[in-house]
Design a protein around this nucleic acid. Structure first.
Lengths: 253, 253
DNA sequence: TTAACATGGTGTAATTGATACACAATTGTA
DNA sequence: TACAATTGTGTATCAATTACACCATGTTAA
């Protein structure tokens, strides 16, 4: 918990170096042991959780800002990031239950202004992430998608919109390079799709379809150690993957 | 051309009622006589054209702001509007050739700050629009997509991104309700698709596919007066159209 | 008046893609 | 060593897409 003095310093600093009225919120998706996860922070004032976020430096491109913010929370440098929506309701950024709000006069309180928030979603490889709290959180951890806490502000809407966008994206973009380890099995990749879509897929048809995209390389080795038949390992064919990202998967018209 | 005095008043007003650092730019698409068009304004200082845009009032939702801005430029109240991207490079809003820039000291110049611009694209029925210039333009008119003028700032990028998004959208969303008149023929609708995609489509396959979506009602009458066989008229089935907008057209996974 | 022409309405065969299955192979364990 | 669970591969069926052909209708110009 920050003292009043620390707060004063923080806010004085913030309003000098950051653009007013603009914030960034990130929905960071990870995948581990068959579970889709989202990175969240627990407020150190209340029982509410929020998404990693921050502000834009005076002379900083917004993409850079999003990357910087995520680097601070995850330790990862090059992250797959995508803008998905801007949240701009006038009352979205009212902190109703925040102790900090009343600790300083309104004029000095950088946080008490109206923020238009640019939403990014990120796909990251779970094992590379070192969740790191920020100044207002006592905890930063992965939360399972089917066991989400109470959200602060409009962060539930932001999360929901990100997930919907990701699901839509799945229909015309390859996904997974940033969520899977370097080598993975077909069932593992299928599990990712099933988790994102919250829907079972046919094993054989999934394989045929995803192979037809031409974005995978089949490797010689198999994944030993499981209690059953050893599945083949695959890796992404980065060249084709990137091409598919640009041109889309299945053409409409 | 505004005088220095008018400018001072304008800017003094602007910084009081609008949020700093945030702007909105709109790419308004129309369709007339087989041509795709975009609404643009000609700067009254230079030979450059720009897209309809504006700012967000202190307590105004951003969607409302976009609608208000477009109402001022087109006269239309209920417009099909969609957020498509945020443009946030630090140097995107530097007015390099603008006479206004030097007319007032930097501090008072609302326009001389950095703007993060939220891009919206709009689809409107050409005939309902009354193009109306703003304070900085001598002209507001439709421009053909294949005869575009020189753009101000990064408005060419904004336009390009909007068009790319629209083309992608065409693959999983119905479109046309906002671009076509109430009643139209199949060839007219096809022309719209061909224009947006910049690609010829097979007449018969187009018809089968678009009818399969179930978003059209076939009418009894035909369009008389053309130099050839009278084509049937269609209208959109609003109920199915809305449903298709929500759920997408062709399912992926 | 009528043939030429441009355009619109409708249909069909061939190919491709999606779906719903079945069966054999492999691995660790009881 | 048989069993259960899982993976690899194949195929029959149905739906969608593509590439065409043919007839109908209204205008125009001989």
């Amino acid at each position: 918990m920050l003292t009043k003095q620390e707060l004063e310093k923080y806010w004085a600093e913030a309003s000098k170096i950051y653009l007013n009225h603009i914030s960034i919120d990130c929905v960071v998706f990870g995948f581990h042991e068959g579970q889709m996860k989202v990175l969240m922070l627990k407020s150190n004032n209340e029982e509410a959780w929020y998404l990693p976020g921050g502000f834009v430096l005076n002379e900083e491109p917004i993409e850079t800002a999003a990357n910087r913010i995520l680097k601070e929370r995850t330790g990862i440098d090059e992250i797959f990031l995508r803008q998905f929506h801007v949240f701009g309701d006038p009352d979205r950024s009212k902190f109703h239950n925040d102790i900090y709000r009343d600790m300083l006069p309104k004029e000095q309180n950088f946080f008490n202004q109206r923020f238009i928030s640019i939403g990014y979603y990120a796909l990251v490889d779970f094992v590379n992430v070192t969740p790191t709290p920020d100044a207002f959180s006592e905890m930063c951890t992965w939360r399972d998608l089917d066991d989400l806490p109470q959200f602060q502000l409009d962060h539930e809407l932001i999360f929901r919109t990100a997930l919907d966008t990701l699901r839509l994206q799945l229909n015309y973009q390859p996904i997974g390079y940033n969520l899977m380890p370097k080598e993975f099995t077909m069932p593992e990749l299928q599990k990712l799709y099933e988790t994102i879509l919250d829907k079972k897929l046919d094993r054989r048809n999934f394989q045929r379809r995803i192979l037809a995209f031409g974005i995978l390389n089949k490797l010689e080795q198999t994944r030993k150690g499981g209690a059953h038949k050893a599945p083949y390992l695959y890796e992404f064919n980065l060249e084709n993957y990137r091409a598919a990202l640009k041109e889309g998967l299945q053409g409409g018209w």
